[in-house]
Simulated assay, not measured.
Amino acid sequence: MTLPRLSQSLQRIAVSGTNAMTDRATALREQGRDIISLSVGEPDFATPPHVIAAAKQALDEGQTRYTPVAGTARLREAAAHHFRRDLGIATEAERVIVCNGGKQAIFNALLATINAGEEVIVPVPWWVSYPQIVRFAGGKAVPLITHARDNFRFDAADFEALITPSTRWLLLNSPGNPTGAVYPAAMLQAIGAVLRRHPQVMVLSDDIYAPLNYTDAPHATLATLCPDLADRICTVSGVSKSHAMTGFRIGVATGPQWLIDGMVRLQSNSTGNPCSISQAAAAAAFEGPQDFLADWRERFRTRRDKVVAAINAVPGLSTPTPDGAFYCYIDAAPLMERFGDDGQLALHLLDHGVAVVAASAFGGKDGFRISFAADDAVLDEALARIAGALA
């Protein structure tokens, strides 16, 4: 009898660390446990009313059929407008693909281009799915180590030192998950200078957190700063973080035509088109008012400052002030003699009613990530529980 077995591709990857902890916290709550989850990156704000109205209108009008695989004409045009208006990227609707979330856009781009053994340089700490997708595609994730003392940003020379003839991509996330790192224009231009010397290297620029930049400088992105490299850059964006639409599952990407065409071909044989109702809502999000984002950003900034102060007041914990996104990446190295590793520390905090994600899920060690995209009262209680658990 032949036993069932998983493919070699699937055996190369693990379940997402953030999703695993969030699912565990949900299961405990369903059992009656009082668990506060700071493990998932999900704004607690309500989806804007005009977006909800657009979804309802789409239902009422019967927009419940298949759409083109790459997305509706309206949403592709709205997304192209978003890339031009908000990121300064010169693009058109034909060079936009709409996917089932930003994660699928990244998955499509990497699977469409990576051959067995090719290398992808990924800054560490990294978003949990970056190396998993690279490995699934048969590639090799090459870690580019960053440090808190540098605000978790890498130097262009360190990037160039890792490039080999097999290097296919650099994955760049700014503002970043899990650290909140933001790359200013000067650093991106230095990266661009390196790329000009290595024409085989492409860049996937994950700009999903672009609206959540707490520096005084405007958001900078590589495709805008280095237009001569535009045919080697894929930029990913969406509405999940900016418009509190995580459940709608809409992400968008723009890049060179050959790459977008390849991503569409892959998507046509996997999921097909994204949800038609979600596409109508996302179009309204891109087309509609954006002024609420300034208020959301300031509320996140206030929460950030509160969390940083509270964490740094706990003996054994420390965190730099993140420049963007809504995460704090916390160092707990002084506590490892007590707990052994960051996985055990995360379980200890879960036992005390707070779900966090161990740093090891992000390629790091001896710490954990928390999301401050939660109600202020919830954050206050979670921070008190963390302090109490480690007292």
Rank of each mutant, 00 (worst) to 15 (best):
A116V: 15
T91C: 10
S360A: 04
A54E: 04
Q267D: 07
G272Q: 15
S205Y: 15
V96K: 09
Q257L: 14
D375M: 11
P315D: 12
M187I: 12
A333L: 09
D295H: 03
P211N: 14
F136S: 03
Q189F: 03
A346T: 15
L162Y: 01
V15E: 13
A389F: 12
A112V: 14
T18P: 06
A220V: 13
P125V: 13
M202V: 12
N213P: 07
V203W: 01
I133Q: 00
T302W: 04
R74Y: 02
F159H: 09
Q132M: 00
L170Y: 08
A105N: 03
G88D: 14
T64G: 00
G138M: 12
A355G: 07
W127G: 02
A223C: 01
A359N: 07
Q267H: 02
A281M: 02
A90H: 06
A78W: 02
G102F: 03
A161K: 11
N312W: 06
G139L: 10
V142L: 05
S276A: 14
Y214V: 14
A283D: 01
D323G: 06
A389G: 04
A79S: 10
K140W: 09
P256Q: 10
T215P: 11
E92W: 04
F136I: 13
P178N: 01
R196W: 03
A55K: 06
A79E: 08
I36P: 04
P48I: 03
T235V: 15
